[in-house]
Structures are given as C-alpha cells and as structure tokens.
Design a protein around this nucleic acid. Structure first.
Lengths: 128, 128
DNA sequence: CTATTCTTTCCAGTTACTGGAAGGTCAAGA
DNA sequence: TCTTGACCTTCCAGTAACTGGAAAGAATAG
C-alpha cells in the first residue's frame, strides 16, 4: 500500500505520514521502487497516533503509547500513568490560562476603549 | 548601558534581549565598541514586552502593543481591541483544553490501571 | 599584565509539522 | 509508443520564541 492510500485510510496528511516515517514513529519497509510500503497494521498504528495526537498527546508520548499498544502483555497501569500525567499537564495549562485570562480581563475592563489616549491596559503593561 | 545591565533591569535573560534586538522589537544603537547601547527608555520597552509576554501576548502582538505604547495619541480602543482579541483566543484555547480533558478523563476512568493487559484507553486510541 | 567577565556573531536544536522545488515512477489513454 | 497526469522520492526552508554553545574580541579588577 502506497503512502497516499495509507494516509487516506488513517485520515492524516501524506506529509505527516512521511514525517512519522522520518522520525521512526511509524516506519514501513520500502518496495523495490523505493516507495514506502504500508500494510494494514501500519495504517492502524497511524490511526492510533492520529487519535492520540488529537487527544493532545505529544509525539514523544505517542511513541510510548505505541510501544504499549504493540505490547500485548503491557500493564494497563502503564498506560493509565501516561494518561494521568497528561491530564495533570492539561490541568496545569488550563489553570495558567485561567489566571492569565482573569488578570487580563480585569485590566481590560478598566479601559474605556474609546478614542481617548488614556489606557489602563498600556499602563499596566508598562508597570504602573 | 550594556545588554547585561539592561536585561537585568528588565528582568529578562540576555539571550532574549539580544533576540528582541535581532527581530527589531527593541533595537538599541551600537556604541563605538560594537556593544548594544541601551538607555532607560529601552529598558522600559523591554519591561513592557516582558510583561506583555507574561500575559500571553505573542511577539507579534507585543510589536503592535509597543507601537501603541509609543504613540501618545493612540486611541485606547485600539489597545482594548488587541486585548479582547487575545481574551477570545484564550477562551477558545481553554475550551479546547476543557473538551480534551473531559474526554480523556472519561476514558481514563474506565481503565483499571492494574497489572492486567486489558486497557480501555488503548482500545479507545485504537479506534475501538 | 593577566585572569575573569563581559560582549559579539553565528550555528544548531527545540515541536510538529507544512510548503515547495526538482526529479523519479507508474498507469491510462490517443 | 508516446505522453500526460497523478503519484512518489528527497531535500531545503519556514513556522514561534527562544536557548545553548562555540569562538573570538573588549573591558575591568587586582
């Protein structure tokens, strides 16, 4: 199966699939003509990565997950650990954004937002 | 004032200050010896950028904000527009993260996280 | 006068692709 | 058979915003 078909089946751009091959994430063998030769298992792995990425896992995390995916005798605890690690990271990021949002919102509220030059937002950013 | 002192006064790493000079964000003149020569206004601008970055504004947004900061006759509406644009972006990102978090959390809950191989997380990622 | 601390430039790496150029391969149609 | 077009290949560059490090010149303290 050529890269175009594999990418199509996995719902990923060809460029991305090629990239995953370059970084040895999902690296199929080559056919005689030099073309990458994907099989059904490769497509499954590509789809797996695609879904993992959609959940916000980094490529490094995808690599670990893929290893566990391939390992029939993994402990589900190992998978869950990665997931919870990721959940914690999501929580932290959300908390950071919420703080930022709240502070910026409070400052923005003070600004009239008219044609006048006086601007509490600028003042705050300037350290007033 | 040399870059080290300016960076110190602005609370930024020297590397970052040099980077800002490279991209013409805060670009001081050069002294005879070739050293960048910062004055008090430059330090203020650096601090301004530092605070803006801390609020999550991109460097591109900082550039716009800096222009407005420098313009005594700006309309506060222009500043507020950037701030609200940024608030909207923050809201969107937070919503995305919240969705991700909820979905992943729901899936993770199904996983026992023990020594067994059966793992609903993997199953979900595999598209089951 | 020297040792240390600055400063300079430039190159590379980070994350996860994405776009584009130049060129090889293959299947179908005239 | 020839050609056209769709596909494949590699490699280079760019994205965002730095950060680390190397090599070399400048300044300063003792």
């Amino acid at each position: 199966m050529k890269i175009g078909d594999a990418a199509n089946a996995a719902g990923l751009p060809v460029k991305t699939v090629r990239y995953y091959a370059d970084i040895d994430l999902v690296a199929p063998p080559r056919a005689d003509n030099g073309y990458r030769d994907y099989d059904a298992a490769d497509v499954k792995r590509l789809s797996f990565v695609g879904r993992s990425r959609a959940f916000g896992f980094s490529v490094a995390e995808c690599r670990r997950l893929l290893t566990l995916y391939d390992d029939d005798s993994r402990a589900s605890a190992d998978v869950k650990a990665i997931a919870e690690e990721h959940l914690a990271a999501l929580d932290q990021k959300m908390a950071e954004l919420a703080t930022l949002r709240a502070e910026l919102s409070a400052i923005a509220k003070e600004c009239k937002g008219d044609a006048g030059a006086r601007c509490p937002i600028i003042d705050h950013l300037a350290g007033a």
